[in-house]
Nucleic acid binder design. Structure first.
Lengths: 162, 162
DNA sequence: CATATTTTGGACAAAAGAGTCTGAAATCTG
DNA sequence: CAGATTTCAGACTCTTTTGTCCAAAATATG
């Protein structure tokens, strides 16, 4: 459904959003906490930087930070920036121009699913997901099963004020 | 969303279902009508044969046919046979065991989409799609834009009675 | 200014998906 | 039985995705 790149991008930005401070979070920190390959995650976050969803900063005390308030970044934005928006628009059978004028045999049913997907993705913000991730029993990774473990280890992440 | 193999399998079985006769339809015929690589489609249909959704027959007058009435083969069956059922069950963030006990930050929203997907896929049969494909302006391929063209060329496909 | 830290940008390798090809087995026709 | 047709089974290539690595640019610290 979603590419690995996209999943990593979503996980990482939730993590950054949950780190409420304005500091830049080093990618190495995110990668090790989330058990994602550092080099691969670097590429994903570069892409999000180029798309204007996150800001980056080099050097000591550098890292990445959200470019906008977490209430203004949606799941739709993240998916669109990494995997593109075809998932929200494309025909199930991959037929170009599938629509009311020239539908495919599954058009009306698939449209319903896509609409649901679009509406939910547009409504679901990083803020909402980060708050969920802050609650007990809601997890962001496979290894650290419980979020409270995850985010207690997050707090002393970077003592610096940027 | 769906793999190419899966899309081809769906298109091909709709095509077979729309060919109401009990004859075996040669894969070469399906491939050329649907503009799909013959050898690749062969592999996909072999898979559907092994999964018991279609029957095959070798030699002259051979080909493939639905193993069950088209009213009893659903989109869910086809997707499950080729891409597997993970699309209907898997967490958006790919976390194993994502559920009520250990949800991910997007769990409840994603569950809604997956349920919609599952319900619709289970309800949508080859029969329904084949009938749609028989109507004007409903198409199955990119090249042959209108189904009535497609299926007028289909009728004399194979004069043989199996 | 020298050094350590961190992103950037590219090259590169491994794995999976998509597509091609060939020969063997089964089956019909004459 | 001989030949033509069609699926079956496997090897093979090409492309995309995923993952790894390294040197260069930017920046903070002492």
């Amino acid at each position: 459904m979603l590419s690995k790149s996209c999943i990593y991008g979503i996980q990482a930005t939730i993590y950054v959003a949950a780190n409420a401070s304005q500091d830049f979070v080093p990618i190495s920190k995110i990668a090790s906490e989330l058990k994602i390959s550092f080099h691969f995650l670097t590429k994903v976050l570069q892409q999000l930087t180029q798309e204007g969803l996150v800001n980056s900063y080099r050097g000591p005390k550098g890292g990445v930070a959200l470019a906008k308030p977490s209430t203004e970044i949606t799941l739709y934005d993240l998916i669109g920036a990494i995997d593109g928006t075809t998932i929200f628009t494309e025909c199930m059978l991959g037929l170009p121009g599938c629509g009311i004028a020239e539908p495919c045999p599954a058009h009306e049913h698939w449209t319903k699913i896509r609409n649901e997907l679009t509406v939910i993705s547009r409504r679901l913000t990083l803020d909402t997901m980060a708050k969920k991730a802050g609650e007990l029993n809601v997890r962001l990774t496979d290894e650290f099963r419980y979020a409270h473990k995850l985010f207690s280890s997050l707090k002393p992440v970077n003592g610096a004020q940027a």
